[in-house]
């Protein structure tokens, strides 16, 4: 047991080392691509806390991304604050919003929760489009980061990497604390969880707030990186879809599932867009469909079960078809 742990730690450390050193030997385009992967890995991992572990499939997590971005933009542009302050404020602001919206919305279950969160995100987008302080549909500019071009690429890459490590570390700690047990208990059977003494409302709200916190941080870095923010892209349903697809594709309810999902989905869609200029999203849709039909438990299930090939796919279909 101990030996295995050491093995995992070594492998993990090795991968981390490669990721840390990776920008030093890459060109700007690839660093930027890596930054995108890391950003989606943060968001998919953050989604995993509420959707994967707690079993509340949020279809509006992009709202935290957008809020984080706009808090950063407003604090830096209108209040002249430093990015470090704006970054933290983005995380805590998104978490606070999660608590406020979570208290009523987390009383809903299943599809109803999904649609309510979707509605919250869409309503927020419409609100931001109409507010003066966010400069409505024309978008808001942020101050540029005062670094060389190469320095900027490094900065955003390592900010995303650091935030991702923070996300995974805190998720790991939560999972091994009592809170983690309560979240999984809620996912498995909420009534039973309540009857064994779990304050389900409190646990769910904390999970939602954590999910919002990390997504808000990602939004903050993204806004600073873009130096410009518009409501449409900042609150896009497609971003939520991407987080979920990545989490499911990699394996939801598993610590590293969303990370693996983000990595492979981004690589797949990037490769597709290299080969098929126009039709790559069409192929992306196909990938999602095939992945759901053949590997509903995610890539990480294939990896840990060491099951590959046709028989594994057919087994999944047999289990779920009518």
């Amino acid at each position: 047991m101990e030996k295995k742990k050491l093995q995992y730690a070594l492998i993990g450390g090795f991968i981390l080392l490669i990721v840390v050193l990776f920008p030093l030997v890459s060109n700007n385009f690839i660093i930027r691509f890596g930054t995108d992967i890391l950003m989606f890995a943060i968001m998919a991992s953050a989604w995993n806390i509420i959707g994967g572990y707690t079993g509340y499939a949020s279809f509006g997590n992009v709202v935290f991304f957008g809020i984080g971005g706009y808090i950063t933009a407003i604090l830096m542009e209108k209040a002249g604050m430093h990015f470090a302050v704006a970054y933290l404020a983005a995380g805590f602001g998104a978490a606070l919003f999660a608590v406020l919206i979570g208290l009523p919305v987390l009383r809903l279950h299943g599809h109803y929760f999904a649609i309510a969160t979707l509605g919250v995100a869409e309503a927020m987008k419409a609100l931001v489009q109409n507010l003066e302080i966010t400069e409505g549909n024309s978008g808001i500019y942020l101050p540029m980061l005062d670094l060389s071009i190469k320095g900027q690429y490094y900065f955003f890459f390592y900010m995303m990497l650091g935030t991702l490590i923070l996300t995974l570390l805190l998720t790991y700690l939560v999972l091994n604390a009592k809170l983690g047990y309560s979240l999984i208990a809620i996912r498995e059977d909420e009534d039973a969880a309540n009857s064994v003494g779990i304050n389900t409302t409190l646990s769910k709200t904390i999970a939602f707030a954590l999910s919002g916190f990390f997504t808000g941080l990602a939004g903050s870095i993204y806004a600073y990186q873009q130096a410009f923010l518009k409501p449409g892209p900042a609150f896009s349903v497609q971003t939520t879809v991407k987080m979920i697809v990545m989490a499911v594709f990699g394996g939801m309810g598993k610590l590293f599932g969303p990370l693996i999902g983000a990595f492979s989905i981004e690589i797949i869609s990037e490769t597709l867009s290299n080969y098929f200029l126009v039709a790559h999203t069409l192929f992306f849709g196909t990938v999602v469909i095939l992945a759901i039909v053949f590997t509903p438990k995610g890539l990480i299930d294939m990896i840990t079960q060491r099951k590959f090939g046709i028989s594994y796919f057919l087994e999944n279909i047999r289990e779920h078809r009518i």
Binding site: A185, E188, D189, A192, G197, I198
Partner: peptide, 19 residues
């Protein structure tokens, strides 16, 4: 109403944690 995705031990442990 067990928590099906948990082990037997974890099921009982949740009770001990929150009771």
């Amino acid at each position: 109403k067990p928590f099906p995705g948990m082990t037997v031990k974890e099921n009982a442990a949740v009770g001990a944690m929150y009771g």
